[in-house]
């Protein structure tokens, strides 16, 4: 297991005749996804648009996205990993018992039908949301689905893509990766980047009370994080850059109002397929951009003495512990 077999959204628009949404509700959460990229678009390969495409929705409950789907498969909550594993077996014509299938809440006929449609597709794409990646099994579920997509390429063209949300979370990922090698959960406390989700991810650092200051840009953890993490944010000097008043700005020691990206400040946002989009502001704002504030803070810090006395630490670690 490992890796990701994917494509840019234009490939889906152009070619995907078979689309699975798994653990997500795009009709409400990504309302432009169907019309811009996946279902409604016509292309030279799919001249009839929606009629040339099949859409399958896998979810634990009926959402508004069901209406847009051709096939709805209601999986029993917490059984996504089992279902994906069964599909991987069926794709390879391996034995699966009735009890195993029953556990998922679906029938053998429905799964056989799904598998034969997947194999008959010319270009299949699976989008997965937080209903898969943030429920029981978490990253194991995502890995299983990505593996299914990779293995499908023995039969036909198949790709998979996470349905990412929130403002430019992909952009943060991309830049952290080129600067540090890791997407998130990074600690610099030894002077170089180390990665350990579960130890260095924000919630864990806050809940343990490891940090003595917090600097928050473009996020509202005060509204989403567990209470012990929020409590720690209240205890320490928390600085927030945000155009709006948020849960976090209310508990912060300092709130600097900034211009909204893409509306009053320029910049770049990365789409969920990691394509960078330039942001062109339509309005002027009396407030500075996030970038300007960070730059000025950086300049102020640069005037202070360096964090370590000269020669007090090695410049390089040849083998990490």
């Amino acid at each position: 297991m490992g890796g990701k077999v994917t494509c840019t959204l234009g490939e889906v628009k152009q070619r995907a005749d078979f689309i699975i949404y798994w653990g997500g509700n795009p009709a409400e959460c990504h309302p432009r996804h169907f019309s811009k990229y996946t279902l409604m678009q016509k292309s030279k390969f799919l001249p009839k648009g929606r009629k040339d495409r099949t859409m399958v929705l896998v979810d634990i409950r009926e959402t508004k996205s069901v209406k847009a789907s051709d096939i709805f498969l209601q999986v029993r909550p917490g059984k996504d990993f089992e279902l994906i594993t069964i599909l991987r077996a069926l794709v390879k014509e391996q034995q699966v018992t009735d009890e195993q299938i029953e556990e998922t809440g679906l029938s053998r006929e429905a799964l056989n039908d799904l598998v034969s449609r997947m194999k008959a597709a010319k270009f299949g794409c699976m989008f997965f949301g937080m209903g898969l990646s943030m429920t029981r099994g978490k990253h194991m579920n995502s890995a299983a689905l990505l593996t299914l997509a990779a293995e499908m390429n023995a039969f036909t063209k198949f790709v998979a893509m996470p349905m990412r949300g929130h403002g430019n979370v992909t952009g943060a990922d991309v830049i952290m990766r080129w600067q540090t090698g890791f997407p998130f959960g990074i600690s610099f406390n030894r002077g170089y980047p180390r990665y350990n989700p579960g130890e260095f991810s924000t919630i864990d650092v806050l809940v343990r009370g490891d940090c003595d200051a917090a600097f928050i840009i473009g996020a509202d953890p005060g509204g989403t994080m567990p209470q012990p993490a929020i409590n720690h944010l209240k205890r320490i000097p928390t600085i927030v850059l945000d155009p709006h008043i948020t849960h976090t700005s209310k508990l912060a020691r300092v709130h600097i109002t900034t211009a909204a990206q893409g509306i009053a400040a320029p910049g770049t946002a990365y789409r969920m397929d990691e394509i960078p989009m330039p942001l062109k502001p339509a309005l002027k704002s009396p407030y500075p951009s996030d970038e300007e504030v960070v730059r000025r803070i950086n300049e102020a810090i640069a005037k202070k003495p360096f964090w370590l006395p000269e020669g007090s630490m090695p410049q390089m670690v040849t083998e990490q512990v």
Partner: peptide, 29 residues
């Protein structure tokens, strides 16, 4: 950048550059 994301196990064992006055931190490998 995709390759970087796919190889955290290599970043873990490779040469690391520690931040200094003239240099940003980073990883080799």
């Amino acid at each position: 950048n995709f390759a970087r994301a796919m190889t955290p196990e290599d970043h873990r064992r490779t040469q690391a550059f520690i931040r200094t006055k003239t240099r940003r931190s980073g990883l080799g490998g």
